[in-house]
Design a protein around this nucleic acid. Sequence first.
DNA 1: TCACTTTGTGCCGCCAGTGAACAAAATGCG
DNA 2: CGCATTTTGTTCACTGGCGGCACAAAGTGA
Lengths: 404, 404
Amino acid sequence: MNGKATTTRTKLERGRSALGPALELVHTGRAPTRAVLTSELGVTRATAGAVAAELEALGLIRVDSSPRSAAGSQGRPSHRLSVRDGGPVALAAQVHSDGFRAALVGLGGRIVATAPGCVTVMADPAQVLGEVVEAGALLLRESGLRCVGAGLAVPSAVAEPEGTALNPMHLAWPAGAPVREIFSARVRAAGIAGPAFTGNDVNLAALAEHRHGAGRGAQHLLCVATGHRGVGGALVLDGRLHTGSSGLALEVGHLTVNPEGRPCHCGGRGCLDVETDPLAFLTSARRDPGPEESLLKQAGDLLRTEYDDPCVRAAAEELIDRLGLGLAGLVNILNPDRIILGGLHRDLLEADPERLRAVVADRSLWGRSGSVPILSCTLAHNSLVGAAELAWQPVLDDPLAALA
Amino acid sequence: MNGKATTTRTKLERGRSALGPALELVHTGRAPTRAVLTSELGVTRATAGAVAAELEALGLIRVDSSPRSAAGSQGRPSHRLSVRDGGPVALAAQVHSDGFRAALVGLGGRIVATAPGCVTVMADPAQVLGEVVEAGALLLRESGLRCVGAGLAVPSAVAEPEGTALNPMHLAWPAGAPVREIFSARVRAAGIAGPAFTGNDVNLAALAEHRHGAGRGAQHLLCVATGHRGVGGALVLDGRLHTGSSGLALEVGHLTVNPEGRPCHCGGRGCLDVETDPLAFLTSARRDPGPEESLLKQAGDLLRTEYDDPCVRAAAEELIDRLGLGLAGLVNILNPDRIILGGLHRDLLEADPERLRAVVADRSLWGRSGSVPILSCTLAHNSLVGAAELAWQPVLDDPLAALA
DNA sequence: TCACTTTGTGCCGCCAGTGAACAAAATGCG
DNA sequence: CGCATTTTGTTCACTGGCGGCACAAAGTGA
């Protein structure tokens, strides 16, 4: 999420000390005990002990040295590590087409408090973000918890390093709205501590799934998700969100998946975007598409409850084939080791997992030699948790500096 | 090029000391003087001095403290840094459809010696690689230089971590041939010092261009190149080759660029692979395609010498449009900050740079807001130099350990 | 109760790199 | 020509993270 490397780099660049990596291991649940932490970090027990003690002193984690009930293995049981209850939180916010949601998220992706909300005038980003931050500030005041920063998820590509929303069409916002600047200003104005970040919702969902959900442990994680309209993609490489040189990577909506397909506003035809979204599905299944906001739910329900209907099934299989073609194209380019699907794509996967996997394997060049696992999203509110990850990142990189 | 991270990591993982980064800066020409080295590394003058002295003691670089003639700036002139002449070299090898080439490559991508060669029986990888290594060993003996390792470039996708060539069809090798194993065994058998590596030729060309050619300084470098048949792609992220989870990323040949196009062996139609290769161009220009080995040269010559011919021009513009569509698709997914073209694609770019840039800008979603620079390859024998980069990498990562 | 295994802790030493003081090599000015 | 100024090279004491070791602690199994 940063971008260019400046000519002069500071000495602090490669994060000193094992504090950051250690916190990340506890944060992502990969270090349940101090012994595991020792081996994961690749340091001595002495160092791991010091690091764990320091993180505890910072109020971030809890080191439980009490005797454990059922042990199982030999030797002295290791101290257990966990995220501290009542520790600092990040303020997470998400804006979508029919409202917003604010939440407080602790380490480990734990949602501590949440507040949904609606807005009356959607078209003005400053006003919407003002209300969102207001709701978040209220949550913070009520909880009395320390805040490490704020993160916002928006359903639009976010250009780096400006932080402008390029296509927030679902929100009726003007293209190029400086969302990061607005959000950041509102956060500061509300007296909320810490830096403020903004990112695309699918990107942030992918980040959250990688750290706390179905993407755990993947080195090259590809996520693809449909919202009410349109398709979004995200790539998490070695634990870091890959957003390209200017934040616009993984705009996967315009892969050609159907040469004879319907025309798309991009100038091509048969794009993934218009071929695999809820509206396409409902149309193909000859159902009357309801209001814009409920397209996703309507399509999902149809898939789950009426898959016996030949018409629904045929439409689903058509979409699965198209989606598979798109995923295969992405596999050929990105060679991920795991794929996670969200939104309608998730429903399509669950409707007929074998069919989708077969198409991807068949149409990706080396699919047969070890095909890619394709999974569903598992995390509730993953964009929200991902927004919090943004705010937590500085702490994960250097706890001492971030909490100073 | 490595792949998975093992569960237990050693303490040596994050390369200690600034030796490696410093050597890389000199290697890539980004640190011409000690003063620049100091600021690029972000360390004190004392440290930079010690590091430079140590690299000189290792016989890798030269520190020139002699007074300089024309200075220009104020203050004491800084010591100049350069790659040492007569220092160690890497053995680089490249196999292509009509023979092979071996070379010795020093730091800075300097080709010290080179030896082209032909083989009689192409179909047996063991025999071909035997001859290649033999030629390289001869070069090494003649030069008397120290060898840090060997690298091989093959015109095929190379699967990681096995190191097998998945589609070496231009070489008439069996698919799945264990090229890394064979090459490595031959290198050891010839008594050549250091580890042996193997990679795809376009990947290695991209790496070389990033370090010593047109890709210098790019953070997200995309390379696309055509050989005699087929299209290859490569991505260099933050100075490291991105080969995906199993070495198969950037298999860009099967992006759909022409819905009504000719069928492709992948099962689709209108793939970049069959729409923008030399054969497609010659056919479209209604020229008689000559023998397989000379397709690339024939097409390139035609573009350069007969671009006035309406028939040639029409064919070229068609290919440019298709290529532009493919590049735009890649831009939407990868969001690179620079694109470098090789082979026929380079010739197409140079035939009409504006047309190609316009197509890419028009069909990539955010092309208008700061379009991507598209450049030609500039480095002679870039695959060869890239193969050497593979062998140099351990030294660049940790000079002390690699030369111990 | 006694080996045995595994983990936690205190202490010492190493070493890369910092920071500051000083020396050196160039330019420009009187 | 000499001198102030600027920029760089060099020396040296110091620091901070971490390895290595020895020993203590807390379990399991016979």
